[in-house]
Write a protein that binds this DNA or RNA. Sequence first.
DNA 1: AAGTGGTCTAGACCACTCG
DNA 2: GAGTGGTCTAGACCACTTC
Lengths: 245, 245
Amino acid sequence: MIKNAPQALYRRAKDFVQDQLRAGVWKAGDMIPSEHRLVEELGMSRMTINRALRELTEEGHLVRISGVGTFVAESKPQSNLLRITNIGDEIVARGHQYSCKVLHLGREVASMPVAAALSLPTGASVFHVICVHSEEGIPVQLEDRYVNPEMIPDFLQQDFGANLQPAMYLLQVLRPDEMEHIVEASHPSSDESKYLQIDINEPCLVLMRRTWNQSKIVTYVRLIHPSSRYRLGSRLPVNGAHRDN
Amino acid sequence: MIKNAPQALYRRAKDFVQDQLRAGVWKAGDMIPSEHRLVEELGMSRMTINRALRELTEEGHLVRISGVGTFVAESKPQSNLLRITNIGDEIVARGHQYSCKVLHLGREVASMPVAAALSLPTGASVFHVICVHSEEGIPVQLEDRYVNPEMIPDFLQQDFGANLQPAMYLLQVLRPDEMEHIVEASHPSSDESKYLQIDINEPCLVLMRRTWNQSKIVTYVRLIHPSSRYRLGSRLPVNGAHRDN
DNA sequence: AAGTGGTCTAGACCACTCG
DNA sequence: GAGTGGTCTAGACCACTTC
């Protein structure tokens, strides 16, 4: 589990800082040692330390105030809307403990809305998995996923968990060539609030995603996030190529 | 031709490169001059040029191959979600009646979070507009926008309404070259629930958008949508090439 | 005045690719 | 071997905040 030998020094400096964050040595709001002090402690030049801290700031882990100091950010995790990301990877990348618990896995007859979402005839047989993703033991995402058996016949035979999430498995066996995202806000159902351990009145961010391969739908998933624990975001260049409409 | 020069040299190097890209001097797939050559042309040190090119690479404008060269990235597809849309156009396109009512328009001293969002010093003077967008007389979006006066000095002199929304005006006078979207779910504040004519307990989809022009922030806006009346969506091809971390 | 981050320089060594 | 990017150093000057 312990991986050493990041070759780049600035990488090791970043890892060092993230280790302190992960270990809770430096907590949200704390001021961390100055660049000068880190130069002494780690034996690197200030430019190298500066690059490490600058990148951690861009990634949202730190907040720097010129003339004052560097502080641990109050983290409200944010993931990229454009990419198909594994929430597990995101959490691990933040240096946090990740877990995934499968609540349901089986084959069932598609209800009308599910069949419609997958563009299958009503009554078609589909795979269905429900799991909860947790960060540091706190549920951050409820995944309610339907899979087209025609595309992924071996889906049920997998041993899903923190090391093999459904999303990860699907990406590995069948890379999608198109996807659709729909985002909305809603309150959780009573089941959902129970699984996520939140109040029935807490607003949730719901991301519905469908992915295609060769013009056929691979999977349809609803990802439900408590608003207090999750955000979606993206930053990207604007193409000059579109006026309006 | 004459531009207010950004103070930081690496910024000017970035602007120089982006100017070449915008002007079409360097096109997608082209190899651009090496660091060494840019050092000579711009009269900066290699570290400075390197930082500029590294950041442009992280932002997706360039692709660098060690030992080979630096190339202009192929432009990325863009989704509806990530496109800057006018809600008025959307509503009109649906064949519905659209209206926009300005609730507030003026200049004020930026609070700390607003100053931070705009990357301005605390206490800076900013423009602030609040308006409600309605479809068939029903409010569907509350727009709470801050504008950088340095970028858009004539903002307050405009006569905003259904025929000239703030978003439309901004797009017309200063096309952004970069943007950031963050989406979250929340309950409306009491003021917001009043303006939107919804219950204080109705979940809302909140889209926060910042746009950049020439590496400076033009505007920061919070768009609040009652979940029962609005969704965001996108469908787009998947790029094969994704980097991690 | 002392401390902080923001930036910049003019070198340097390395691994890599290409002809 | 020449060219490229990737990284690193040991200084430096500046603007800013805090005491």
